[in-house]
Design a protein around this nucleic acid. Sequence first.
RNA 1: GGCGCUAUGGUGCAACGGUUAGCACGCGGCCCUUUCAAGGCCGAAAUACGGGUUCGAUUCCCGUUAGCGCUACCA
Length: 385
Amino acid sequence: MTQSPRVRFAPSPTGYLHVGGARTALFNWLFAQHNGGTLLLRIEDTDVERNRPDLVDGILDGLKWLGVTWDEGPYFQSQRLDMYRAAAERLVAGGAAFPCYCKASSYAGGDASPDKEGEGDDEGPKVHKALPCACRDLSDADRAAKGREGIPHAIRFRVPREGTTSFEDAIFGKREVQNAEIEDFVLLRSNALPTYQLSVVVDDIDMRITHVIRGADHLSNTPKQTLLYQALEAAPPIFAHVPLILGPDRTRLSKRHGATGVGAYADEGFLPEAFRNFLALLGWAPGGDAEFLRTSDLVKQFELSGVSRTNAVFDRPKLEWFNTQYLQKLPIEELVPYVAQQLKRAGLWQEAWGGAEHGWFSHAVDLIRARTRLLSDFSTAARAF
RNA sequence: GGCGCUAUGGUGCAACGGUUAGCACGCGGCCCUUUCAAGGCCGAAAUACGGGUUCGAUUCCCGUUAGCGCUACCA
């Protein structure tokens, strides 16, 4: 029986809501809207080092500006720690995970670069080979001894040494990897805080998520999560990894590329709907040549099958073109509120324009819009009055 | 280094074995306009490379190259 889908957007508060996150949020929202599903918002704040609680409001504001509304949450992983610890204990008890007493910096089980000895691996971590550390096969007595010594430990997943793990991705198709390629990843850090792999799976199971729509940077780690679903005896959701958004130099979009937080676009005077239209077309197409798609069209036509597998470059000129189009074509009564808001922010607003002179005001907006590209252009024009 | 993903003009997409390879942004030119935008018309510009499979490959397979991702007690 197919019940209505449940999806989630799960940002971590380590920065503002950037363009890539905004598009992931938009796709989740469009998917939920199109299918009559539910969108939950979950804050993944388990990394105490990088986590900045003060950034959460900014992310929520960004989503609100974007027009991405959620039905449940926000949930905070930092308030659900007991659940992750219980899951980790369950896995250890069942033999699917084990305590690891290695120091974080000297763990020998990763499969990172086994490059040549001698050449300056300066501050670089130890050379790794895909071999499990000894902790994996410690006897109960040895573990008890380590425990008595008070040696801190992390909990690692016991990845099968043989066989393969596979999952189905709605965008990339069937994926299969050799288990031997997967290291015994950490579930619970020695400070008892969960890693992404553990918390994301525990939450997605608990929150009954049916479709995990997220950035393709998570594609390679999905087998680990598949293994966790199996160990936790839960059915995995349908995964849908969307390609990444790159800067003009084809590297991952970052602060170096200028404004990457959606708040900056709001400040500059972009219309949310134009931004949505532009963003939706970065990695997705309805199948034909149609481009000017109002949000209602986007909702109507959005399908995971139309999502591309190729990374896309963020093209600002095109975003500006979309904005100009919306500025010209939006029904005047839809545009006026945005202009009013813009003028208020610029301190140029006059109360009468919202009351007695409303008719005149909207007529003026209609005349001026023809030569504007950004909402902020109205401020420039308004100073003339 | 290992593993994986991807590959159509500068950019975003369409074409999911058979098209003169289409649309849009941007760029150039012309028209319109007192000017600037918007709009209209025209133009330059692409299937990364090499092998296969096939009557026929942008499309399917293999290799090369390039880019990206993962390989953290980040997410």
